[in-house]
């Protein structure tokens, strides 16, 4: 595991920001890290970076203690914070090069020039003059320019326009192609759906769901819409069927994976003429996880 957290607890006074969070990021994967505002994503990342100390549980980074070995571990990773703040009187180019050098990389042999071009970022502007999106680009260029083993990106595209989001997606793909691991915290579900191999969804400091997108889909209901020739069968009596709505000859419901066979049998018996079944989108998984009250 490149990064993992087990039963992680972090308290700020009486407030439990993390309450037994589990996270496991395997080598070479893009791991989506999802959760509503205040769920504890940034706190988890800060603990993994050794910026904060866990109140309980264990965090490991490259199989080492991120608190004790912070500086040494940081040579192997690049971090883009959610809210990038730059030095007001340093130019963007200076900031990129400084961050690269501070990680032990040489800007002259890095891909910084190519990336500045791709992100269409003017490196001569001073930090105070950049917009939010451009500040984010400065941090992204510094992160992608040298070959870090692990990229920790905290809502990295929140200020980027769609064109730049595409550049970002390409950069993530290139990074994984060369074997890098990416921990991507995000609110943008389509982005995670497109990029992530596995996701962890957290809520109120706890892990609600974790697994590959495929595995999570198996755990969740499909939405079934059918039109029948005969009378609409009473699906509510079947196990694993929810949210049944009948409108004339049309019936819609959501079905647990193991209830699907029964629903199909009932619909077939009723003479189904049209049938669509959509797998849950990540958006629904996400909202579903939010709605589930925390234990």
């Amino acid at each position: 595991m490149v990064a993992e957290a087990h039963d992680l607890v972090k308290t700020f006074g009486a407030f439990r920001a993390l309450d037994g969070l589990d996270l496991a990021v395997g080598a070479g994967e893009v791991h989506g890290f999802l959760g509503p505002n205040g769920a504890g994503k940034s706190t988890t990342i800060r603990i993994l970076l050794g910026l904060m100390r866990a109140s309980g549980g264990e965090a490991r980074l490259f199989d080492a203690d991120p608190w004790r070995d912070a500086a040494a571990l940081h040579r192997r990773l690049a971090y883009v914070p959610g809210d990038v703040s730059l030095w007001p009187n340093l130019s963007g180019g200076e900031t990129v090069d400084l961050l690269l050098r501070m990680r032990g990389a040489d800007p002259r042999t890095s891909r910084r020039d190519e990336l500045l071009e791709r992100f269409s970022l003017d490196p001569t502007k001073k930090g105070r003059a950049y917009s939010k999106g451009n500040r984010q680009k400065v941090a992204l260029v510094a992160a992608f320019a040298a070959d870090a083993e692990l990229l920790i990106l905290d809502e990295p595209t929140s200020g980027l326009d769609p064109l730049m989001e595409q550049v970002f997606n390409d950069c993530v793909a290139e990074a994984t192609d060369r074997g890098a691991t990416v921990l991507l915290s995000s609110h943008i579900l389509s982005e995670v759906e497109r990029l992530a191999d596995r996701v962890t969804i957290i809520r109120e400091g706890r892990t609600v769901e974790t697994g590959t997108l495929a595995a999570l889909r198996h755990l969740h209901r499909s939405k079934v819409t059918a039109t029948v020739a005969g009378s609409v069968p009473d699906l509510t009596v079947l196990a694993g069927v929810h949210d049944v709505a009948v409108e004339g000859p049309q019936v819609t419901c959501t079905v647990d994976p193991d209830g699907l066979a029964g629903v199909l049998a009932a619909l077939t018996a009723a003479g189904v003429t049209a049938l669509t079944s959509t797998p849950p989108s990540l958006e629904e998984l996400f909202l579903d996880a939010y709605r589930t009250p925390a234990r």
Binding site: L49, A71, L77, V84, A139
Partner: peptide
């Protein structure tokens, strides 16, 4: 408080430095 220390400390710069 502005978040710049976090950026620096996420590099190979130790707290001591």
């Amino acid at each position: 408080t502005g978040g710049r220390a976090e950026v620096v400390l996420a590099t190979a710069t130790s707290r001591a430095r």
